[in-house]
Design a protein around this nucleic acid. Structure first.
Lengths: 199, 199, 199, 199
DNA sequence: TATGAATGAGCTTTCATTCAT
DNA sequence: GATGAATGAAAGCTCATTCAT
């Protein structure tokens, strides 16, 4: 198998790992992590379960690898954010970049959003939490009023929710993303100015 | 069995159904639906698995029953909303009442939020979706600009997120709830006036 | 419950035992013994499982009671047969009476025929076997040629099979029964004369 | 595991599927389908239940596979029968071949005979019924008198019953089989000539 | 790089049965 | 004459994982 000269079948030239990740992410996002079995993934790829174990030591490692491969941009974003001054412009830029980062790994974030209970028990849970904390730190002014802190967090959540909930809403997807972004930027701006305004 | 005078053990006088619901909800919210086995629930209650089946026909029915018992207030809210004029005051009141309703069934909503992938496959999935649609309809002005529609949805999601994400944030819980509510009311107000203001 | 003066509901005046037997036999015959649960029987009667246990000590006892109540005619037939001379007329009469007896307890015999593997393990298994042995003894001449012994047994089995297999065959039921009877009588006659003829 | 040189244990070289079928058929025939659990089969083979599921998707598939593997001769017989003229010789030959076919798959047919209620609910039920219909069609003259139709069916049933009921009867097995066959051939002959004779 | 064969643990569910009321 | 509540045992089945080849 996989050894035909013409390569009609099984032309996988070492990209199996990739294909596993792709299929797994798709299924995890659609059905949830626990409801997706390795058998199912294997069948979709027309390989055996054992083959998956050649590429990944456990089921968990598949989702971990996806997480690590796809969330680098967010890690980068946080690092960038930390080096910037806490100005309004910075915060707005962070929101913009975060929106772009989310859009770039939609299925993963959909998965994370819809399987929080599961994620919490997985190894990625803590990493994710820390990342969220990092984001908060660079966007929230710890001395601001509670309302404004909530506003900042709300900005982030608006971006998250925007990705999935708005799927039901009619309208051009690109326009929707822009609208979501505008609201988020707005929130972060109000948070920033509120803090300043009330001084 | 069930014969001790002090009633310490086995004082189950017909409250077993309730106790099952309580424990199940707690565990479902903590660990997720699939990761919570009936064995685990039964052990927590010191009964056998079979006893669960005396009270509920399936595992799914447990969560369904919780859903039906606990979401009545929201159904009522939607019905009330439909009968009101689409004024700003109404929308604000809806947000306030929704906040209260969420607070009244925290664990269930935490479960729903954190197990969306699971819920979607369960029988409650559709009901929940429709309920959300109902909420949107009474809070969103379909002729408003996209940004304002997003703002309205963001208000709802701020309430949702507020319940759980803010747990990490330090501060008095009651104060936090008020802050969240204020932001949500703000958003819905902006949505309403934006629509009006730009006319 | 069951105590209303008008008796609209639960007018069962002590005939519950009967009703259990009726429903049980119907279900056992339709679905088999193992596939029929006490829950199912109870639901058909609109009583609880526990009620069945008031009338019968075990599930097995239900089928045993049916067997005992319904196979008396065959026991009688055998006793009668034993007291008769082993003439052709006797044998023919036995076949005729056996046919009538089978017709009188169709569902039970259908059950016995279609659940032999089960029956064998039940308490009635041995009783049934002995009854069959009794029948054979009064219809088979132990000194006859093997072929003629087979013919006698075949006569009995033709009657058995006739009851169920012929259901598929088109034609008036009464006519079919007569035809079956004729073939059986024929077989037993040939068996008797063959034995005699070859002497 | 599976590494001993002498191969006493775990010499399973791919014959496990076969061994499962063998043991399963034996137990199904002895105790009935429902009373035979997969645990029991697995224990007899000294493997785990899960191993059975590697080879068969469900319990039902085990019996289905047996049916498909073992009833080919009968299917062939029916096909052959259809291509032959409806002469007496053909019918007699069919009876003879059917007798041989039954003898070749005794345990399966014993199972089918003794678990009819179960078989009816299984996937093989319909196939079996059709096969029986096929047999009837090539052996019964639809224009013959009812008695003669019954005689033909009786021939088939004599063969069936012969296999099991006669186990109790003393005498050389081979002789018994011959006797049964003779009676069956006789019946089919009478059926054929009766039809002819009464014209 | 993969497969074939298997395992051990665990799952949801069903069943016959019991017993205090 | 019956119910409500529960049990212990077992069933069929699925899953992540292993390992020799």
């Amino acid at each position: 198998m996989g050894d035909t000269m013409d390569g009609t079948k099984h032309q996988r030239r070492g990209n199996t790992r990739q294909r596993i990740q792709d299929v797994a992410l798709k299924l995890f996002a659609e059905q949830g992590y626990e409801k997706t079995s390795l058998r199912e993934i294997a069948e979709h790829l027309d390989v055996t379960k054992a083959a998956l174990y050649y590429h990944f030591k456990t089921k968990e490692e598949i989702i971990v690898s996806l997480f690590e491969d796809l969330t680098q941009p967010i890690e980068d974003l946080i690092e960038w954010g930390r080096s910037q001054p806490h100005t309004l412009e910075t915060k707005q830029e962070i929101v913009r970049r975060y929106s772009a980062a989310l859009a770039g790994a939609q299925p993963l974030f959909r998965f994370m959003q819809e399987n929080q209970a599961t994620v919490r028990e997985l190894r990625i849970g803590d990493t994710f939490k820390e990342r969220m904390k990092g984001l908060k730190e660079i966007i929230i002014d710890p001395e601001a009023e509670m309302v404004d802190q909530v506003r900042s967090i709300s900005a982030l959540f608006t971006l998250h929710a925007g990705m999935f909930v708005l799927a039901d809403l009619e309208g051009d997807p690109e326009k929707k993303r822009e609208a979501v972004l505008e609201v988020a930027v707005d929130l972060v701006t109000q948070a920033h100015e509120g803090a300043r305004g009330r001084r």
